[in-house]
Amino acid sequence: MEFTLLFLATAIVMVIAWRGPRPLALGLFGAVLIACVATYLHHATDTLKLSF
């Protein structure tokens, strides 16, 4: 579900970047990027089987 919402948010940011005010596009882009990083950290729970 979270990935569907992230795609939707990215599409909305694109439309605002193309048709809406620039500051809003910049702000929403930042929010989407933070949400992407949070989603990544939430899913990155598998242990990497590496031994350096």
């Binding site: 795609f7 990215t10 940011v13 970047a17 992407c36």
Partner: peptide
């Protein structure tokens, strides 16, 4: 999917 989203996010800069 996350990588696809971030590829799509790459496009916001060029659109602006």
């Amino acid at each position: 999917l996350l990588q696809r989203i971030l590829f799509a996010a790459l496009a916001v800069g060029p659109i602006l």
